[in-house]
Amino acid sequence: MRRSSALLPALLLPALTLAACVPTQSRGPDYSALSGNYVGTASLGPIPAPYQLLLNVNGRTGRADGVLTRTSNGNVYSASGTFRPFDANSGMIDLKLFSTSRQAGTLSARVQGDKLDGFLKTGVLTFTVKLSRSRPPQPNQTQPNQTVPVSGNTGTRSVPTPSSSVTVETTQTETTTSVPVYVIPTPVTPPHP
């Protein structure tokens, strides 16, 4: 009996040492660059319908999910399924689409760079899907930062030029005031059903 209990630590030590060396996550690419907002059409023959897909890809877990919206009528589908990588910059998604709690169809597509091409199946109909990733404009890239001098009680100071302005007329007939309006673009995400 003493012999087997003395031998147990000697056998477990190499196994525990090797287990500590095993990584907990894959060190391969995570494919998060394929995630994003894709906009385009799904066509049934010559009839295209506008669609938008907010896609989240996790290459380490092999999962993909998102929200598919038919923008012409506002139909929204939650999507979840698998992601299979092809190479470092592309892969295949197979998503089940749900409307409320029932399955409404499937989306199978190849995602490569900024393109998503595949098929949307709903019931007996199969649509050809062609979507492109849309990127929001960066504020510094859309308009150079310009300043205009403004005089006040403390002297002259520089104020950034707004991207647009609104003219407000007061009740006095001699004075009009221009009020700057700063527009900050915000991404719109459709609600989950």
Rank of each mutant, 00 (worst) to 15 (best):
Ser99Asp: 15
Val179Gln: 05
Gln52Ser: 09
Ser78Gly: 15
Ala109Trp: 10
Arg157Pro: 02
Gly62Asp: 12
Ser164Ala: 10
Gly62Gln: 05
Val183Asp: 06
Pro14Gly: 00
Ser35His: 09
Arg133Met: 14
Thr106Asp: 08
Val168Glu: 07
Pro46Met: 03
Glu169Ile: 15
Glu174Leu: 12
Pro14Val: 00
Gly40Trp: 11
Pro160Gln: 01
Ser151Glu: 13
Ser134Met: 13
Gln25Trp: 13
Pro23Trp: 01
Met1Asn: 14
Val111Gln: 13
Ser151Leu: 06
Arg102Gly: 12
Leu44Glu: 00
Ser165His: 05
Thr69Asp: 01
Pro190Leu: 01
Gln172Cys: 10
Asp87Thr: 07
Gly91Trp: 07
Ser35Ile: 08
Leu95Glu: 06
Thr170Arg: 14
Pro136Ser: 15
Pro9Thr: 14
Thr173Tyr: 11
Thr175Arg: 13
Pro136Val: 12
Ser163Trp: 05
Leu131Arg: 04
Ser165Gln: 07
Ala49Gln: 10
Ala15Phe: 05
Thr189Lys: 09
Leu107Val: 00
Arg157Cys: 03
Pro144Trp: 13
Leu13Tyr: 03
Ala10Pro: 01
Leu11Trp: 02
Pro190Ala: 09
Met1Ser: 14
Pro137Met: 14
Val168Gly: 01
Ser158Lys: 04
Gln52Met: 06
Gly81Asn: 05
Ala10Met: 03
Asp117Gly: 09
Gln141Lys: 02
Asp114Glu: 07
Pro14Met: 00
Cys21Val: 14
Leu12Glu: 04
Leu116Arg: 12
Leu55Phe: 02
Leu44Lys: 00
Val183Thr: 03
Leu97Ala: 03
Lys130Ala: 11
Ala79Ser: 03
Pro180Ile: 01
Pro23Glu: 08
Gly91Gln: 10
Thr71Tyr: 04
Gln143Tyr: 12
Pro144Cys: 06
Ala20His: 05
Thr186Pro: 06
Cys21Thr: 13
Pro190Asp: 00
Ser80Phe: 15
Ser72Phe: 11
Ala20Phe: 04
Pro9Lys: 08
Pro137Asn: 08
Arg70His: 06
Gly62Ile: 05
Pro191Gly: 13
Thr147Cys: 10
Val188Ala: 12
Ala20Gly: 11
Ser72Gly: 15
Ala42Asn: 08
Thr161Ala: 11
Gln143Phe: 10
Glu174Gly: 05
Leu16Pro: 01
Pro85Asn: 07
Asp117Ile: 07
Tyr77Gly: 11
Lys130Thr: 12
Gly40Thr: 11
Leu125Gly: 01
Glu174Thr: 08
Ser178Cys: 11
Gly118His: 10
Asn140Met: 09
Met1Tyr: 09
Asn56Tyr: 06
Asp30Trp: 14
Thr156Arg: 03
Tyr77Ser: 12
Asn89Tyr: 02
Pro9Asp: 01
Ser43Asp: 01
Phe127Leu: 10
Asn89Met: 01
Thr69Gly: 01
Pro136Met: 14
Lys130Pro: 03
Leu8Asp: 00
Thr122Glu: 13
Gly59Glu: 13
Pro185Gln: 15
Ala109Thr: 14
Thr186His: 07
Arg102Asn: 08
Gly91Tyr: 06
Pro136Asp: 12
Ala19Ser: 13
Ile184Thr: 03
Thr61Ile: 04
